[in-house]
């Protein structure tokens, strides 16, 4: 077993651990915004680490895996931003746990809350 294979294996294990933690986060978090938080970060680093590990195991794929990593780092946050924005505009507002409910949601100055929808959700 060469040193490259050991590094690749370790990276793949780290990647799968982070992907598992992301899945656990999606299961445990209370509302869609917190789920997106856990989902985006964990899947980005998890997938990057997995793909880099594959690059180490198969050195001729190294450059291609680097391109994939760049595109994942580029597109993953954009998709989560689009999901969060669409959800807010659809009328599902973030869960707020603290007592200061008025000031905790700054985005309502752009998209005013609609009372009826809020009750339905």
């Amino acid at each position: 077993m060469s040193i490259m294979e050991i590094i690749g294996g370790i990276l793949i294990i780290i990647g799968s651990i982070f992907l598992f933690l992301g899945a656990l986060g999606i299961y445990r978090m209370p509302d869609i915004y917190n789920r997106l938080q856990a989902g985006t970060k964990a899947t980005t680093l998890g997938a990057m680490s997995l793909i880099l590990g594959v690059g180490f195991l198969e050195p001729s794929w190294m450059l291609k895996s680097l391109v994939l990593i760049i595109f994942i780092a580029y597109s993953n946050p954009i998709s989560s931003h689009a999901l969060a924005r669409a959800t807010y505009r659809r009328g599902h507002y973030p869960l707020i746990l603290s007592d200061d409910k008025e000031n905790m949601d700054a985005y309502q100055e752009v998209v005013p809350h609609e009372k009826e929808k809020e009750e339905k959700v």
Binding site: F18, L21, L24
Partner: peptide
């Protein structure tokens, strides 16, 4: 990015789910 992942891991694993979300 690595800090963020450790942070998310800490929050997800801890049983009390320490969050205080807002915008």
């Amino acid at each position: 990015l690595i800090q963020a992942n450790l942070d998310v891991a800490r929050r997800v694993i801890s049983p009390s789910l320490p969050i205080n979300p807002g915008v």
